[in-house]
Design a protein around this nucleic acid. Structure first.
Lengths: 106, 106
DNA sequence: TGATTTTATGTCCAATATGACATAGACTTC
DNA sequence: GAAGTCTATGTCATATTGGACATAAAATCA
C-alpha cells in the first residue's frame, strides 16, 4: 500500500497498520474503503482543476462547506452516493468516475 | 435511450417519458440514475453467473432477500453503497464495477 | 395441477447519512 | 500581525436508508 493512501486512511480514522490492521478486513471491506478513498481524492482533484472552492461546490450540491470537506477527507459519515454526486457536480463524467474506481484497486 | 433501460426505470418508479420526462432532470441526475441502473443490472447478472439465489446473496451481505430484490430492481430506497457492496459480495471486482459505471454512460 | 422454490412489493422502525451551524486552523496579502 | 479567504472538525435534528417480516407473484418441476 502506498504511503499517501495510508496517510489518507489514517486521517479518515481507519487506523491503518496499527492495532487494527488490514488483516482484519475482508477483501470486500478493503475494496470498499479504497474505492471511497479513490473517489474522495478524485473529487478534490476535480474541484481544484475547476478552480472551485469547497463553498462553490457545496452550493452546486445544495450542501455545505463542512460536508464537502468531509467528502474530500473520506470521512466515515460520507456515502458513495454523495461522493458520486459531488464528482458529477464538479464536472466529472462517468468515465472519470469509473477510472477513479478502477484506480482504487488493490 | 434503450427500451430495456426505459422499462427498468419505469419499473423502479422513475416515470420515464411520461409526464415527468427526462427533460426535467439535470444531466447529473440522469447520470446518477443510469449508473444506479447499470449497477443493479450488473448485480443481477453477476449473481446469476455465480448461481446464487437472492437469499444466498442476502446471507453473504448480512441482509435479506427482499432487499436484494430491491437492489436488483434499482429501487429508490437502495443506495450506491449497498449496490457496490452487493456486487463485491457477489464476486465482482473493482474492474467489473468500473465497467458497469462506465457502461451506464449517457 | 399442486408443491416447491425463487423473486417482487409493501410496511415498519432502527441505524446511518446529511445539511447546518459553530468554531478552529491554515494560508495569503496588505 | 491583522484581515480576509479557504479548509478542517465536532455536534445535532432531521431525512434517508436498510434489515426484517408478511405476503403476493412467478417460475420450476414432479
Amino acid at each position: 500500500m502506498q504511503k499517501t493512501k495510508r496517510k489518507a486512511l489514517e486521517n479518515a480514522g481507519w487506523k491503518v497498520g496499527s492495532v487494527t490492521d488490514f488483516l482484519e478486513l475482508t477483501p470486500e471491506e478493503s475494496s470498499l474503503i479504497e474505492m471511497r478513498l479513490a473517489l474522495s481524492q478524485a473529487l478534490q482533484k476535480q474541484r481544484k482543476t475547476q478552480h472551485l472552492t469547497q463553498i462553490d461546490l457545496a452550493k452546486r450540491l445544495g450542501s455545505s462547506q463542512s460536508r464537502v470537506a468531509k467528502m474530500e477527507a473520506a470521512d466515515g459519515s460520507v456515502s458513495f452516493d454523495l461522493l458520486i454526486r459531488g464528482l458529477l457536480a464538479a464536472g466529472a463524467n462517468n468515465t472519470d468516475i469509473a477510472r477513479a474506481i478502477q484506480h482504487g484497486s488493490t
